[in-house]
Design a protein around this nucleic acid. Structure first.
Lengths: 324, 324
DNA sequence: GTGAAAGCGCTAACAT
DNA sequence: ATGTTAGCGCTTTCAC
C-alpha cells in the first residue's frame, strides 16, 4: 500500500507538504505542487480515508437505516439519497433493519462506532425512541421522536385528497388498508386525514391493517381477501401504498369486481411501477426525490453544526390515473 | 467522545487491558474483565471503528456497486447482500453507478481509499476492465473480467428454458427484448440460449434492445410499441426482465392483443412483483438470495486470502404462471 | 514556502 | 495477568 510517506520521499518533500497539496491548504510552490501531483500519479496513490477520518474526526459517511430496502418506495428513496450524498462528497453506509427493534438498535450503535457524521433513520420500531439519544445528527423519516428533526410527506393531506377524490367519484362504502397503526408513525396520518374527511361527509370507513408493517405480498393478499369476503359492497379503497393497491386490485378482479367501474382504488407513493399495472394506479404522489434531497441537505446542515428545522413536511398531490 | 483511555482510567487499568477485554484476547483476570465491562457500560463506551480499522488494517466493510438500486432485481439483491454481510459482521458501503463509466471508476477508487475489504461489483460499463486492476478482492456479478471471479445465474440455460417453453406452447413468431447487447454482459447469454434453441427448431427470433441498459419504463414502452407496430403477428416474447415483460404485456393488451391467448410472454428474474401483475408473469427464476449468499461467501473467502472459484454459475428454473 | 513533531483512538509485540 | 511502547496513515499546530 502506498502512503503519503512514499509519495513524500519520492518527491523529495515531507508528508506535511504532501498533505498540504492534497488538501489544498497553505502556501505551496507551484513547482512543488506539480512534482507531488506527478509522483502521486506515478505511484497511483490514494489517500487512506480511514487515517484521514481518524485524524480529522470526520468520516464523510452518512448512515441510512431502512426498514426494507426491497420495498420499491425505499429503494427509490435510497437511490436518491445515495445520489445527493455522493454529490456532496459523502458516502452511504447501508443498514436494513427489517423492522426488528434489536437490529435497529445494533445498527445505530454500529454507525456510531463507525463514526458516521449523521444518520438518516427511516426505520421505526416501538421502543427505539429512548435508545436513540445519540450524540450525532439524526434525521428521521415518517417518524416523530422528541428532540429529533424529521421529514415526511404531508400524510394527512394525502389522506384527505384520497378521500375527496373517492367521494367525488361517488364512492360511499369506504375502506382503508395499510400498515399497522400500532406503531407511532407519521404515515398513520394518512388514515387520519382520510377518515376525518370521510366522516365529515357523514360516512364511515372500515380499516384493515397489516401485521406490524410487514411489507409482504402474502399479507396484502390475505387482507384483500378479507375485504371482499365481507358482505358489504365496498366501492372505494384507499391503500397506504401502491403495492397494496395493486394487490387489492388484483384480488378484486379475481372476484369479478371491476376496477374502477365497481370499485375505485387509490394508492400512495406514486411508484414508478404504478403505471405498469392495469388499470394504472391512481395515487397520492410522495415527492421521493425532494425528500431525499431535503433530507441530505438537513442532515449536512446538522453535521455542520447549524440549527435545523424540526418539522419538514413536503407537499403531496393526487395523481389521477385509471384505478379511481 | 469516550475513548478507551477514559475507560482505562476509570477502571484503574491501562488501555491495553481494555483493548484485551474488548477483543477477548490474552489472559485477563475475571475480576478485571468484569470491572472493565462495567465501566464501559457506565460510560456508554463504543470502540472507535475507524481507529481500529487503521490499526488492524481491516475495515470490515464491503463495497457494493450497483447499476441501479431502484431496479427491483437489484434492490432485492442488495437486501440479501446486506443481510448476509451483516450476519458475518461486515458493513455495506453502497454505490449506485447509474451505468456511468466515470462514476463507476470513481466509486472503485473511493472504495479503495475507504479501505473496504472487498467489492461486489454488479455494475458494468464498457471500459472498466482495465481500471479495475485493484489490489483488493473483487467479485463481479453477471460480468466476466479477466482474472476476476464472477457469479451469475445460468443465463444461457434461462434463455433455453424460455425458448423451450414458448415453443412447447406453440409459439412460432418469436421476439427477444432486453437490455443492450453491446455491453459484454453475461446476461447476453440469455439471448444466446434463447436464439440457439429457437434456431434449432428452424425458427427465427427478432431482437429488440434498449439503449445501453437504461432501466427505464419509458424505454421499455417505446420498444414494446415498436414490436406491435410490426406487421408480423408475434406470438411469443422473451423479455430479459419481469419489468420489461410487464411493460410488454401492458402494451399488448392496449393493442387488443390478449396474453396469453394471442401472445405468450415470459420474463426473467422472478421478482416478487411478478405475481402482482395480471396475468401473473411466467418467468425464469434467478436465485437472488443464493447469489447474494454465495457472493458474500466468496468475497469473504477472498478477503481471508483463500483461493476462490473463478466461475460461479447458479441454476435457474422456469416458473410457469399465467402469461405463457 | 516547508518541516518537525504531536496526536487522532486503537492494536500488538515485547516486557515484566 | 498486566503494562510499556511503537506504530497504523493522516492532519495540524508551531517553528523557521
Amino acid at each position: 500500500m502506498t502512503t503519503q510517506k512514499d509519495v513524500a520521499e519520492k518527491a523529495g518533500v515531507t508528508v506535511t507538504t504532501v498533505s498540504r497539496v492534497i488538501n489544498n491548504r497553505g502556501y505551496i510552490a507551484d513547482e512543488t505542487r506539480e512534482k507531488v501531483y506527478q509522483v502521486m500519479e506515478e505511484l497511483n496513490y490514494r489517500p487512506n480515508a480511514v487515517a484521514r477520518s481518524l485524524s480529522k474526526r470526520k468520516s464523510d459517511i452518512l448512515g441510512v437505516i431502512l426498514p426494507a430496502v426491497y420495498h420499491p418506495f425505499f429503494s427509490s428513496l435510497l437511490s436518491y439519497l445515495e445520489n445527493y450524498a455522493h454529490q456532496n462528497g459523502y458516502k452511504i453506509m447501508l443498514c436494513n433493519s427489517q423492522m426488528e427493534a434489536e437490529k435497529e438498535k445494533n445498527y445505530i450503535n454500529m454507525l456510531r462506532a463507525q463514526q458516521v457524521d449523521g444518520i438518516f433513520l427511516a426505520s421505526h420500531t416501538l421502543d427505539i425512541a429512548k435508545e436513540i439519544k445519540v450524540d450525532l445528527p439524526v434525521l428521521t423519516f415518517d417518524r416523530q421522536i422528541e428532540g429529533i428533526p424529521y421529514i415526511c410527506s404531508d400524510n394527512f393531506k394525502g389522506g384527505r385528497l384520497a378521500a375527496e377524490h373517492l367521494l367525488a367519484e361517488g364512492a360511499e362504502e369506504l375502506v382503508y388498508i395499510g400498515g399497522s397503526l400500532e406503531l407511532d408513525l407519521l404515515s398513520n396520518q394518512r388514515f387520519k386525514g382520510f377518515k376525518e374527511t370521510v366522516n365529515r361527509k357523514g360516512l364511515k370507513v372500515k380499516k384493515y391493517q397489516c401485521q406490524l408493517n410487514s411489507f409482504d405480498r402474502q399479507e396484502y393478499k390475505k387482507l384483500a381477501r378479507e375485504i371482499f369476503r365481507n358482505k358489504r359492497k365496498i366501492d372505494g379503497i384507499f391503500a397506504s401504498s401502491d403495492l397494496i393497491a395493486a394487490a387489492v386490485i388484483k384480488e378484486a378482479e379475481n372476484n369479478g369486481i371491476r376496477v374502477p367501474d365497481d370499485l375505485k382504488v387509490i394508492g400512495y407513493d406514486d411508484l414508478e411501477l404504478a403505471r405498469l399495472f392495469r388499470p394504472e394506479i391512481t395515487t397520492i404522489r410522495q415527492p421521493t426525490a425532494a425528500i431525499a434531497r431535503r433530507g441530505i441537505e438537513l442532515l449536512l446542515k446538522a453535521v455542520e453544526g447549524e440549527e435545523v428545522e424540526t418539522e419538514n413536511i413536503l407537499d403531496v398531490e393526487l395523481i389521477k390515473r385509471e384505478s379511481a
